[in-house]
Design a protein around this nucleic acid. Structure first.
Lengths: 253, 253
DNA sequence: GAGTGGTCTAGACCACGCA
DNA sequence: GCGTGGTCTAGACCACTCC
């Protein structure tokens, strides 16, 4: 009855690698430092490159590493805390918000958004693109969906598209009374378009924040914002910011 | 102006595969249905199994698929909306919350948590494990860190560990005035321990929600909750729930 | 034991950033 | 042009679930 076995419980190699690398990152590397390339690292650990990459991918997902094609792998700084839920009762585009309007067009929203807006599935709405930058780095790309009925007085004289129109639409939106807003966060992967704005490859993991703005008893606007999951920590309802930590991996001893 | 490009712009195979599969899922499959196995699918699409897997991994990440070793790949139901930020001004363990206490021990918290708690890095605190179940499925595992000073009247007579003690600690916590709470969400990967509770493999993507509870001008407790990223959509501050949609991938036309 | 997804290998070529 | 990470292949074996 030998349960005595020291049981090398078949921990996958890439998992063990991840542990080893994590410890090395904690003790022997400093932020911004570049790691040896993948081929060298794989050789050093005696594994195939694909296996090493599996470990690196997880570490990048956890925000410990940053990899760039043609450049190399570097040690990532701690995640940035990004306030997402603190400006309650504020319209998008309110003075001093962190977003920069980029463009405005008109389009039929995805069915899911049309349902949130309670518009017909083939109804065109204003779409405003905005981007959010922190510490000089792009952290989020947003698409705002605003039914024409939410900005009834939008002047036809304003520019038909572009940044100017984006500002005009947001300005008009401010005139309604914002009653409430609610948000949801889920994991997604960057579309080709978002990826470009976020300086990542398509498919990169993102945190998708969907916000509904309520006014006049209906949903006056919907925002779909995609945040870089590797570099961002979304904060909700905090008063003071605390710049601290990461590594969601390690728990109690 | 030539946006006319037929430009075979070198879209990676796995990306194209993902698109094709997504469309197939939308039109030809229903929730719960099982897909052909990976070897067959790969053959059908004329790619290596590894390439097909890259596409499946992304789809699973986006909550469209569910894969289980030894079983197969099935079409996942839409993500569940899980209320996370609505019970403001409520202590963990308040009557009717969604959590079920599982265990309670005492341990030195990770440095990051000790900093949040403003305790010494080698100070032991109470740690309460809880789990959250929705629709019969486990969706989250939580670790609560509670300094002894937050529950000063905890009777030494209570059970030294186990569910009973967990309840006792939470009960004592209610006696303080909760002044505020703030939360942060970030992407992480499941520890071996969490993975088991969440019925996933270690390393599975999770949304890590860190909550600080403020009372008496200090941080009275810290909660680190890990939610299954594949199945959960975290909702904040909503009044009414709206069960709708997913696919954060598709945006405006 | 049969069939599934999970891990791993040892190669190859490609896209990109930079000098 | 060189070195980097990103994609892809065609195999192999393993861990798991279910019959």
């Amino acid at each position: 009855m030998g349960t005595t076995q020291a049981d090398p419980v078949q921990e996958p190699k890439y998992w063990h690698l991840k542990t080893v690398l994590t410890e090395a990152l904690d003790s022997e590397f400093s932020v911004g430092e570049i790691l040896p390339n993948e081929r060298d690292l794989a050789a050093r650990f005696g594994v195939a490159r694909a296996t090493l990459r599996q470990a690196l991918e997880q570490l990048e997902l956890e925000g410990r590493l940053q990899r760039r094609r043609g450049v190399g792998t570097t040690v990532a700084p701690p995640r940035v805390g990004v306030a997402v839920g603190s400006e309650r009762h504020l319209w998008p585009g309110a003075a001093g918000d962190a977003w920069q309007p980029a463009d405005c067009t008109s389009a039929v929203p995805p069915a899911a958004v049309a349902d949130l807006l309670q518009t017909a599935r083939d109804e065109r709405v204003h779409t405003v693109r905005r981007s959010r930058v922190t510490h000089g780095q792009p952290v989020a790309a947003e698409l705002l969906y605003i039914p024409a009925s939410s900005v009834p007085d939008l002047s036809a004289i304003d520019a038909p598209s572009g940044t100017a129109r984006a500002r005009a639409v947001l300005r008009e939106l401010q005139r309604a009374d914002l009653e409430d807003q609610d948000q949801a966060v889920e994991l997604g992967s960057a579309s080709a378009e978002d990826a470009k704005e976020l300086d990542r490859l398509p498919g990169a993991p993102v945190l998708v924040v969907t916000t509904r703005y309520h006014a006049g008893g209906r949903t006056a606007a919907v925002s779909v914002a995609t945040y870089r999951a590797d570099t961002c920590r979304l904060t909700f309802g905090a008063s003071g910011r605390v710049e601290i930590h990461h590594d969601p991996e390690r728990r109690a001893s």
